[in-house]
């Protein structure tokens, strides 16, 4: 009887030890598998050369008043718009209008180092904040907007002369691209 009890206790201890080994091996194996998966996911993230993509410099002296160019920065288009005085005053007037994403025009011409920019020059990332199409400027034949800025042909988002969203599905204003003035006639984006 006593012997049988001892044997039973031994058996239980043995089972516990076995279970512990299985659980430990399983857990360590699972951790290893999880850690192995990460490099295979991370490799699809931008590579170092892509991340360090160079800045873009734009010569402003070539852009007449009322026109814009699309500069390419990190593979994406950037609007560099030379605004007319009328466009500027309209943008300033609308600072206090009913805005979906309220922002002052002054903040939208700010340089990325924090110092104020110039009202004539608006530097915006050219992708609609809805689903990324490139909106058409007011002087484009396909422009069908009402606020004198940009109109997105994909889903009808209508931006004003400060690039703020006024109508349509886009949730945000066109993003200001980070830029600084290198001198009076050239800027560096990025």
């Amino acid at each position: 009887m006593a012997e049988a009890t001892a044997g039973g206790a031994h058996e239980t201890l043995e089972t516990t030890r076995r279970d512990f080994i299985f659980i430990a091996a399983g857990a360590v194996g699972a951790v290893g598998t999880a850690a192995t998966i990460w490099p295979f996911i991370d490799q699809m993230n931008p590579a170092a050369d892509t991340r360090a993509m160079s800045t873009t410099e734009v010569n402003l002296s070539q852009i007449p008043v009322g026109q814009e160019i699309k500069a390419i920065w990190q593979g994406k288009p950037v609007f560099v718009r030379h605004r007319t005085p009328a466009e500027i005053s309209q943008a300033l007037r609308d600072d206090y209008a009913q805005l979906k994403d309220p922002q002052m025009d002054e903040d939208r011409t700010k340089q990325s180092n924090g110092s104020p920019g110039k009202a004539e020059w608006l530097i915006l990332q050219a992708n609609c904040t809805h689903l990324g199409c490139v909106p058409l400027p007011s002087f484009d034949p396909g422009y069908r907007g009402h606020y004198g800025g940009w109109f997105c042909p994909c889903h009808g988002s209508d931006y004003d002369t400060s690039g703020r969203i006024r109508q349509g599905p886009a949730p945000k204003n066109l993003y200001v691209a980070p830029y600084v003035y290198l001198n009076d006639t050239s800027i560096r984006i990025g």
């Binding site: 030890r17 076995r18 080994i21 299985f22 430990a24 091996a25 360590v28 194996g29």
Partner: peptide
Amino acid sequence: IFLLVLSALLYLAYKA
């Protein structure tokens, strides 16, 4: 180091 630990555990599991 990880693989050594894993191998040791797997060896014990195999023996068990």
